[in-house]
C-alpha cells in the first residue's frame, strides 16, 4: 500500500518536473505552428482563409499571444532565480567578475559539494532533516487547527465572537521584535530552550492568518448547504468534516503551502531557541554562511540557497495541482 502510494508520488513528481521543462516550449511551438500555417493561407488566399479559418485563426493567435506574454513576463519574474542558479555553478572568481552572464564558463558542482559539507563537521543533510521534521509537523498542525477555529468563527454565533476575532487579528499587528524577549523568558521557564518545542507547539493552536483566510472562504460557501445537512441529521462536527473541509480544500492547500514555507524560511525563532548547531534548521545554517567581516564562499551560499528552495517548490507544485483538482462548490450543490 505504502509502496504503491510512494511510487505514485514519485511518478507524479517526475511528470511534474518534466512538464515544467518541456511544456512551455511545446505549447509555444504548437501555437506558433498553427498560427504560421494560418498566416500563410491568409497571405495567399485571403478571402478563403478568412472564411475558412476565422475561428482557428483567432484562437491560435490568441493562444500565441497568451503564451508569449505570459512566458516573456515570467522570464523577467524568474530572472533573479536563474541568476542565482547560474551563480551556483560558477567558480569563485567568476561570480563577481561576470555578474550579468547567465551561462557559467564551466558547469562545476564544486559549490554544491563544498556547501553540502556545512560547518564544523555538520553537513547540510542534518539541517535538511531537522527542517523537514519541524516544517512538516508545523504544517499539518497549523492547517488542521486553523480550519477548526475558522469554522467556529465563520459559522457559529456566540457571545464575544467579534471581540475574540478582533483580538486574534490584532495579534498579527504587533511586531515580533518586541514580543521576543518576554517570549524567550516564558519559554525558558517552560524549559523549552534548545528543543524544537518553541518552533512546533505554537503551531498546534492555529495561526491567525490561516484562520482569517479560511473564515473568508467558509463565509463564501452558501449557508443552505449547512442547513440542508443539519436537516439530514448532521452534527456540527459532521458538517465541518463532511461539508466544510472538502469545500475549502483550495484554502487548505494554500495554507499548507504557506505554513510549510514560513516554517522553512523562519530563521529568527530557531536562531534564538536552538543552542546546538546539530539542531539547526536550513534557514539558520544558510544565514551563518555569510558574515560581512570575512571572506564568504558565495558559490556555496547560492548552491545551498537553491537546494533550500527545492522542498518548498515541490510542495507548492503538489498542492497547486491538488488545489486545481479539488471539488468545486457546484459539484456538491447539485
Amino acid at each position: 500500500m505504502l509502496n504503491r502510494t510512494l511510487s505514485r508520488y514519485r511518478k507524479k513528481i517526475k511528470n511534474t518536473i518534466l512538464n515544467i521543462i518541456f511544456s512551455p516550449i511545446r505549447a509555444f511551438r504548437r501555437n506558433y505552428k498553427q498560427a504560421k500555417s494560418a498566416i500563410k493561407l491568409f497571405v495567399f488566399h485571403p478571402v478563403d482563409a478568412l472564411r475558412m479559418y476565422q475561428g482557428q485563426l483567432k484562437s491560435a493567435a490568441r493562444g500565441l499571444i497568451f503564451h508569449a506574454i505570459v512566458l516573456a513576463f515570467g522570464l523577467v519574474m524568474i530572472y533573479p532565480l536563474i541568476w542565482m542558479l547560474a551563480s551556483s555553478f560558477k567558480g569563485p572568481s567568476e561570480i563577481w567578475t561576470r555578474t550579468t552572464s547567465l551561462i557559467p564558463n564551466e558547469l562545476s558542482l564544486d559549490n554544491y559539494r563544498s556547501g553540502w559539507k556545512g560547518f564544523a563537521g555538520i553537513s547540510f543533510s542534518t539541517y535538511f532533516k531537522n527542517s523537514l521534521w519541524v516544517s512538516g509537523v508545523s504544517t499539518v498542525a497549523s492547517v488542521f487547527s486553523s480550519a477548526i477555529v475558522a469554522y467556529g468563527f465563520a459559522r457559529i454565533r456566540f457571545t464575544g465572537k467579534k471581540f475574540w476575532f478582533a483580538v486574534m487579528l490584532s495579534t498579527m499587528m504587533l511586531p515580533a521584535q518586541v514580543q521576543l524577549i518576554p517570549q524567550y523568558i516564558m519559554f525558558s521557564k517552560l524549559h523549552w530552550i534548545n528543543s524544537y518545542n518553541p518552533l512546533i507547539i505554537p503551531r498546534f493552536f492555529g495561526m491567525p492568518f490561516f484562520i482569517f483566510m479560511m473564515v473568508q472562504f467558509i463565509r463564501g460557501i452558501p449557508i443552505e448547504l449547512d442547513e440542508a445537512a443539519e436537516i439530514d441529521g448532521c452534527s456540527r462536527g459532521g458538517i465541518f468534516f463532511r461539508i466544510i473541509l472538502p469545500l475549502i480544500k483550495p484554502a487548505l492547500g494554500t495554507s499548507a503551502i504557506f505554513a510549510f514555507y514560513w516554517s522553512w524560511d523562519d530563521f529568527l525563532t530557531p536562531l534564538i531557541y536552538l543552542n546546538d548547531p546539530r539542531k539547526y534548521t536550513v534557514a539558520v545554517a544558510l544565514r551563518n554562511f555569510a558574515d560581512p567581516s570575512s571572506v564568504t564562499n558565495w558559490g556555496a551560499v547560492f548552491a545551498m540557497g537553491i537546494l533550500a528552495l527545492v522542498p518548498v517548490f515541490l510542495l507548492f507544485i503538489l498542492f497547486q495541482r491538488y488545489m486545481v483538482e479539488g471539488i468545486s462548490t457546484t459539484g456538491l450543490k447539485g
Binding site: 560547518f119 564544523a120 554562511f289 555569510a290 558574515d291 567581516s293 570575512s294 571572506v295 564568504t296
Partner: peptide
C-alpha cells in the same frame, strides 16, 4: 562568537 566561515573553522 560572531564571525564568518574562516573564524568558525
Amino acid at each position: 562568537w560572531w564571525g564568518g566561515q574562516l573564524r568558525a573553522d
